[in-house]
Each structure stands twice: as structure tokens, then as C-alpha cells.
């Protein structure tokens, strides 16, 4: 998968604080990375320029602090279904974001 400039899509990962998560957020991101294969470069947010922020919230409250990401596209994940949607629409579609 490529971004508009033709290079590999870079996704910055941002977590909520994890006070009472309803699923294992880190394991889910690892699964997404695994299923993405070589298509996407996942990186912690703040580690250089990214095409998209993947905000991983432990529950539907979705309270991760997203200030500072203005102007960057944000994809929110609050459960496993959201992760499947991300994989279907961003990873597998081949059409970019």
C-alpha cells in the first residue's frame, strides 16, 4: 500500500491510557501489524511524519488525548470489530486512505 507520494503508508499508533480496557490493545495492534504484512509501516506516533494516526482506545469512551494531531487523518479503534474494519478498508482495499 502506498500513499499519495508513492511511498509505503506510514501509520502512527496512539493508545489511550488503558485504565480499564475491554481487550488487549497491544496484542490487537500486533495482530493488525501481522495481518498487514509489508503493506504498512506502523510506528509510534511522534516518530516522524505519518499518513494516518491509528488511535487505539480500550473502550467506547475513546478518551485518548488526540490534541496535537490536527490536520492528520485519525482512525479510531475501540474494539475488535473496529480493527477488522481498519484491516478491510485500509490494509486490504489497496486504495489507500
Amino acid at each position: 500500500m502506498k500513499n499519495d507520494l508513492g511511498s509505503m503508508l506510514r501509520v502512527g499508533v496512539k493508545y489511550c491510557g488503558g485504565c480499564n480496557p475491554e481487550y488487549d490493545r497491544v496484542a490487537l495492534v500486533e495482530q493488525i501489524e501481522k495481518r498487514s504484512g509489508e503493506k504498512i509501516d506502523f510506528t509510534p506516533y511522534g516518530n516522524g511524519k505519518v499518513d494516518l494516526i491509528l488511535a487505539v482506545h480500550g473502550c467506547k469512551t475513546a478518551c485518548a488525548d488526540m490534541s496535537g494531531f490536527e490536520g492528520t487523518e485519525i482512525w479510531n479503534i475501540t474494539d475488535i470489530k473496529d480493527a477488522e474494519k481498519f484491516i478491510g478498508e485500509v490494509v486490504n482495499s489497496g486504495t489507500g486512505i
Binding site: V13, K14, Y15, C16, G17, G18, C19, R25, V26, P44, V56, C63, A64, D65
Partner: peptide, 8 residues
């Protein structure tokens, strides 16, 4: 740890 930084 990034998965707790928002709170910690």
C-alpha cells in the same frame, strides 16, 4: 510504555 502514557 506507550499504551499507558496517556494516563501516567
Amino acid at each position: 510504555r506507550p499504551e499507558y502514557e496517556d494516563i501516567m
